[in-house]
Design a protein around this nucleic acid. Structure first.
Lengths: 219, 219
DNA sequence: ATTAAAGTTTAAGTATCCTTAAATTTTGTT
DNA sequence: AACAAAATTTAAGGATACTTAAACTTTAAT
């Protein structure tokens, strides 16, 4: 499917499920920066391709097929964001722009490679859920804070929930980064500290940090 | 610039500098899988954009600007190939297909990130040189095709110039890989075949293959 | 030098994705 | 319920990147 079509079904999906706007052509047009007439044209064309249901003057509805396509594009977008963020240390703003382009030129095969490389994360660095290969989406974040992890297990960092520069400097020094793997060595329950291994280094983290580092169990 | 335009200038560049074909519209058309008429149309359009010099019935010539664009696209292609190969352990055939798509949707910024991540390599996994940020290819390519090698000499494979999966499967089976050493046993001039030894195995290669395997003499 | 083959260009036309302007339908207000 | 405002659709048209078929130019062989 063309870039225009992929962006169109994505816009419908997001208006419907995320942004709470209605999905009449005018709203989609505004989101995509095209004229209303162009949106109507495209709606007819997508109806012919069985990607949406279209009735004149009504809101646009994705068919099952259309929703699948939208979820594929969203999956690729969020995987790229996660990957670029982890691999190249790019800011959340930068990764969005790049992902917006790359999402349309990424094979399912490559998307799966990226996903596996990252440990099949369920959420991107913004905290948005990443649909799996079958278009299934986890709406609830099942990641847990480091403080709740179990000794001996391996985890992948899914979120660093802080605005604090000192914290991020600390993370940068020790390789604590979205997508990276850590092993939880010991939970010091009474002192609320956690000892982890990352890149063959052992770090002891206190409560301040174990409560803002979110992880998923590595499988 | 559009994908079509980027692919067009890339095809001219490669025909001219790599493949030794002339750059008349017909040859470009064949390479891109479009009609001769489409190639002529595009040639006129690119002349208007000052990317090529165009005279009726003559070979197409890239302007300085056109060559710069071609080199940018080639840079991105080869960086993606190197990156995907290294990061996801994808085969040479797989990385080519993906890079062919990604090269057009990659910002200069991201290309530089990839390059830096890889340690600013000068060659991709096929052995092709990667232009730098300014479009300079610093290393002079002195490699020749297998068809032009001398009997009895040892050579190092420097490039495998193909998009064909069967070819790469063949290469994988026989150890024909960038950097490996072969000995040219015999040139069957009349039949345009070359007999080589690699890993103590003897292989007879026909013209299809001897024209796309590039080597450097081993000293 | 002629001529047939090979290659290139022109002409006419198609699909996609966009535009603006005019016509039509829906919506919201009284 | 009527009417104006807002939104949507239709109509006409443009740019890009292609197609096939016909006309033209170059080339290569005798």
């Amino acid at each position: 499917m063309s870039v225009a079509i992929e962006n169109f079904v994505k816009a419908i999906y997001k208006n419907d499920k995320n942004d709470g706007n209605d999905t009449k052509p005018g709203n989609i047009a505004k989101k995509l920066g095209i004229s209303n007439a162009a949106a109507t044209d495209m709606a007819k064309s997508l109806a012919n391709k069985n990607l949406i249901n279209y009735e004149k003057y009504k809101a646009l509805e994705l068919t099952e097929e259309g929703e699948k396509l939208a979820l594929k594009v969203i999956r690729k977008h969020r995987l790229w964001e996660a990957f670029l963020h982890k691999t190249f240390d790019m800011s959340l703003h930068e990764i969005h722009k790049e992902a917006e382009l790359l999402e349309h030129e990424t094979s399912d095969f490559l998307a799966n490679k990226i996903s596996a490389y990252l440990g099949n994360p369920k959420f991107d660095p913004h905290g948005d859920p990443i649909p799996n290969e079958n278009g299934e989406i986890t709406t609830k974040d099942t990641s847990i804070t480091l403080s709740k992890t179990k000794e001996g297990n391996a985890y992948i960092i899914s979120r660093l929930m802080s605005d604090d520069k000192e914290f991020f400097d600390f993370c940068a020094i020790h390789g604590l980064k979205y997508g990276n793997t850590i092993i939880v060595e010991k939970q010091f329950v009474k002192n609320k500290m956690t000892q982890i291994t990352i890149n063959n280094n052992t770090i002891l983290l206190n409560e301040d940090f174990t409560k803002i580092i979110y992880v998923n169990e590595k499988k």
